[in-house]
Simulated assay, not measured.
Amino acid sequence: MELTQIRLLVSDFAPVYRFYRDVLGLKPQFEAEGGPYAKFSPGTGQAAIALQDRAQMAGALGRSAAEPEGCRALVVLRVDDLNAAHAELISRGAEFTRGPGPMGDRIRAAYLEDPAGNLIELQEWLVLRDQAGSAPA
């Protein structure tokens, strides 16, 4: 597994976005002040800090928008084979909130929680960002 990002789940997206962009000076990969998702990369080869609208994440998990209010962060780990990682973690006692499934057209993801209730997303990249333009739609 490879740490790809720490994602902060936020209810008021724009002010948090501006803080990371304007105050901390992190460069967003794309302009997205209105959300619902943004990614700031501190440097090449380093894990990123990302922001995601809390209500959107709740919807992806099949929860009500109010339910994840206590959860503020999401750790994202990239795996080469999501199905294999999912099966291995289940064999170790992990209980998944949502099993492997598509997350857009470039990623498959599965979700679990640590004992404190923090979300963990396992990602399998189907298409790398630099290959997305050449991939069939």
Rank of each mutant, 00 (worst) to 15 (best):
F30G: 07
E31C: 07
E31D: 15
A32P: 14
E33L: 01
G34M: 04
G35L: 09
G35C: 00
P36A: 09
P36L: 00
Y37N: 11
A38D: 13
A38M: 12
K39G: 04
F40H: 00
F40G: 04
F40I: 02
S41H: 10
S41Q: 12
P42K: 03
P42D: 01
P42A: 00
P42M: 09
G43Q: 06
T44Y: 05
T44S: 06
G45Y: 11
G45S: 09
G45M: 06
Q46W: 02
A47F: 03
A47E: 06
I49T: 03
A50I: 05
L51R: 05
Q52G: 08
D53C: 08
R54E: 02
Q56W: 02
M57L: 13
M57G: 03
A58R: 13
G59H: 13
G59W: 00
A60Y: 13
A60R: 12
A60I: 11
L61E: 02
L61R: 09
G62T: 12
G62V: 13
R63V: 06
R63P: 05
A65N: 06
A66Q: 14
P68Q: 01
P68D: 05
G70Q: 00
G70H: 09
C71L: 07
R72L: 14
R72P: 14
R72C: 14
A73R: 00
A73E: 06
V75G: 07
V75K: 02
V75R: 02
V75P: 04
L77S: 06
L77K: 09
L77E: 00
L77G: 10
R78I: 01
R78F: 08
V79K: 04
V79W: 11
D81R: 08
D81W: 01
L82T: 11
L82F: 04
N83Y: 03
N83K: 13
A84K: 14
A85I: 03
H86F: 15
H86N: 01
A87N: 07
A87Y: 01
E88M: 08
E88D: 15
L89Q: 07
L89E: 04
I90H: 07
I90Y: 07
I90E: 15
S91M: 02
G93R: 05
G93I: 08
A94K: 03
A94C: 10
F96Y: 01
F96G: 04
F96D: 11
F96W: 03
R98F: 02
R98C: 08
G99D: 12
G99E: 15
G99T: 10
P100Q: 04
P100E: 01
G101A: 13
P102K: 12
M103S: 09
M103A: 14
G104A: 03
D105W: 14
